[in-house]
């Protein structure tokens, strides 16, 4: 009897979860304002978007500065919560975080699973190779070994480029771009498929003898991911970002991190 009751209770709770996702009104913006804080989920190992500063130990980055400004305009506190990138959708759906704001590429799959802001930055998935190998274009890479960060949008870009993927010898998944690039440097890989922003950062930090191929796989855009259905919050953030473009704040933050304004918010798609 007791077990039966527990079962029924569990089912009721489960169904109420699904119901609440569809039937309830969207309180996402109100919840954030009531709580007085926005919990931003990030894989804190993604320079220069969001990472741990080596000298201060603080979480910093372009995305963090952007989010801090948005939060200031919302009148709430910004809380950064490191997460594992592969678990980001789960973190969001379990309400452990309010948004994913960490150089997240907008992909069709993610659009299905989240409410995503307007694109705010353009990114390319580029192929990094050793300069000494002298590869010039994609066809030179047939049968070669490619390294990639597991769970990153580089995977989607690779899947989309079917012919190129089929031509490769092997695809090796890594937890982090850094380890993939290190493996490339020591000859374990022939190329790494990675965000151009990340590639530029590591090539600047470590002066690796690498060359980025001109031919890139897919032009992409970064967006901020919210829980699916949190439209009110998503729209409000869009509105604030557009304001920030108008008054020059966005350009200023971009110049601090990239030396120029590379943001694209509000541009025609």
């Amino acid at each position: 009897m007791k077990r039966c009751l527990t079962l029924i209770l569990a089912m009721v709770m489960l169904s109420s979860l699904f119901l609440s996702a569809t039937a309830q009104e969207d309180t996402s913006l109100k919840d954030i304002l009531d709580n007085g804080k926005l919990i931003l989920g990030l894989d804190a190992s993604f320079p220069p978007m969001g990472f741990v500063d080596a000298d201060t130990g603080e979480i910093v980055g372009f995305d963090i500065d952007l989010a801090r400004e948005v939060c200031a305009r919302l009148g709430v506190e910004l809380v950064t919560q490191p997460i594992d990138w592969a678990a980001k959708e789960m973190e969001l759906n379990a309400h452990h975080i309010d948004c994913i704001w960490n150089g997240m590429t907008i992909t069709p799959d993610r659009l299905e699973n989240m409410s995503i802001s307007l694109p705010y930055l353009r990114n390319d998935q580029v192929l990094v190779t050793r300069t000494e190998d002298g590869y010039g274009n994609l066809s030179d890479l047939a049968g070669k070994k490619l390294g990639i960060q597991a769970g990153s949008s580089a995977n989607d870009a690779l899947d989309a480029a079917e012919d190129f993927k089929a031509s490769l010898g092997e695809v090796v998944p890594f937890d982090e771009n850094l380890t993939a690039l290190m493996d490339l440097n020591q000859g374990g890989l022939d190329m790494v498929l990675v965000d151009v922003i990340v590639a530029n950062y590591y090539m600047a930090v470590n002066d690796y003898p690498f060359t980025v191929l001109d031919e890139s796989l897919a032009p992409e855009e970064y967006g901020i991911g919210f829980r699916r259905g949190d439209t009110a919050l998503c729209n409000k953030v869009n509105e604030l970002l557009l304001d920030m473009r108008e008054d020059g704040t966005l350009a200023k933050i971009s110049e601090e991190w990239f030396g120029k304004d590379i943001t694209i918010i509000g541009e025609a798609e």
Binding site: A44, S45, F46, P47, F51, V52, D53, A54, P82, E176, N177, L178, Y201, Y202, V205, N206
Partner: peptide, 12 residues
């Protein structure tokens, strides 16, 4: 994780 994050930042 602290070490991993630091590794990502300094590239080593």
């Amino acid at each position: 994780r602290v070490a991993r994050n630091a590794a990502s930042t300094v590239g080593s």
